[in-house]
Design a protein around this nucleic acid. Structure first.
Length: 305
DNA sequence: ACCCAGGCGGGCG
DNA sequence: CGCCCGCATGGG
């Protein structure tokens, strides 16, 4: 699955940087990806991670700076879950023609594994919001509240993701000015709570139900956001975040467009996709959203043209 | 102009 | 438990 080649690069089967980056995960909100060049850069804690990717039918080729290739490759392997057994995952979530075509269209899209606080902040900002604007706000947070990242000579090269501790030094009004809107209060509460009351790193290793319960103690983190944090901040594959897109799609595909409660949909997902429901959710979410956006765009082009 | 977005807390019955 | 409401703000 992962092979080290002679020049130090990696080849990874069933991995697509494009589909992963575009699937509205925390990385999407703050990383810088140039599709034409195949370059990705983002800050992980205090270091700037840069890599070049080329998606291919057989595998994705990844090359990094040989200087500290071991460290960067370890970070990429963790962040993109390069160790996942995609054959087994695809086999388990290919339950019907919709899932089969989603896998065909977005093959290689991975669930990412991100820092728990980074994930928490991103998804608090995501509520009742759209992807483009979430990205805008997250990037403002980094620019205005994030730490300066410096190279070996002390020269500033980037800004990093602001820790909860750092954010306690700013006020709700400042978060509002950065575009957080009504979520500004949740951000202020969460930053304080996760700095003084709840150590997110100590939740690692907790079972999914306990993890979710603990996360929901944070004001501004409800059922859906807690599932997002469990999935993308802790790697709990039993988490199945149900947002407006997933809800609509599940109802249309499997319930003849009849309204179902989130609780019923959770039960349905657990029964249908079991241990890999988190992955099933990401393919449902991304394919329904991406195809819908494509339709809207082509419609508006046709109407205005 | 109107509608929507990876929802949540709070108030109500 | 379920239902309903307000919420800030940029883009289609």
């Amino acid at each position: 699955m992962k092979r080290i080649t002679a020049n130090g690069g990696m080849r990874v089967k069933d991995f697509s940087i494009k589909h992963t980056f575009e699937s509205a995960q925390p990385l999407t909100f703050h990383a810088d990806y140039n599709e034409r060049e195949g370059t990705l850069s983002y800050v992980n804690y205090d270091s700037l991670i840069r890599a070049r990717f080329s998606d291919g039918a057989a595998a994705c080729r990844i090359s990094v700076d040989p200087e500290n290739s071991t460290k960067i490759e370890r970070e990429l392997a963790s962040r993109f879950r390069l160790g996942d057994n995609m054959d087994r995952i695809y086999q388990n979530i290919s339950t019907d023609s919709f899932m089969e075509s989603a896998i065909r269209q977005y093959r290689g899209m991975r669930i990412t594994l991100n820092d728990p606080w980074e994930t928490t902040l991103c998804f608090i900002l995501s509520q009742y919001n759209n992807v483009k604007r979430i990205r805008l706000i997250v990037q403002r947070f980094i620019a205005e509240f994030g730490p300066e990242i410096r190279d070996g000579d002390g020269i500033a090269i980037a800004k990093g993701f602001p820790t909860s501790e750092r954010l306690t030094e700013y006020s709700e009004a400042e978060f509002r000015k950065a575009g957080a809107g009504f979520r500004a209060r949740y951000v202020a509460n969460a930053a304080d709570f996760c700095t003084n009351n709840l150590n997110l790193h100590k939740l690692r290793g907790k079972r999914y139900p306990d993890l979710k319960e603990a996360l929901m103690e944070i004001s501004g983190v409800g059922d859906k956001v807690a599932d997002c944090i469990a999935l993308m901040g802790y790697g709990s594959m039993e988490a199945f975040p149900i947002d407006v897109w997933v809800k609509r799609t599940l109802e249309q595909l499997y319930f003849n467009s009849r309204e179902k409660s989130v609780k019923e949909l959770h039960r349905f997902a657990e029964e249908r996709w079991g241990d890999y429901m988190g992955y099933a959710q990401q393919y449902l979410f991304h394919s329904s959203r991406d195809n819908n956006l494509t339709v809207i765009e082509s419609n508006s082009i046709g109407a205005s043209g």
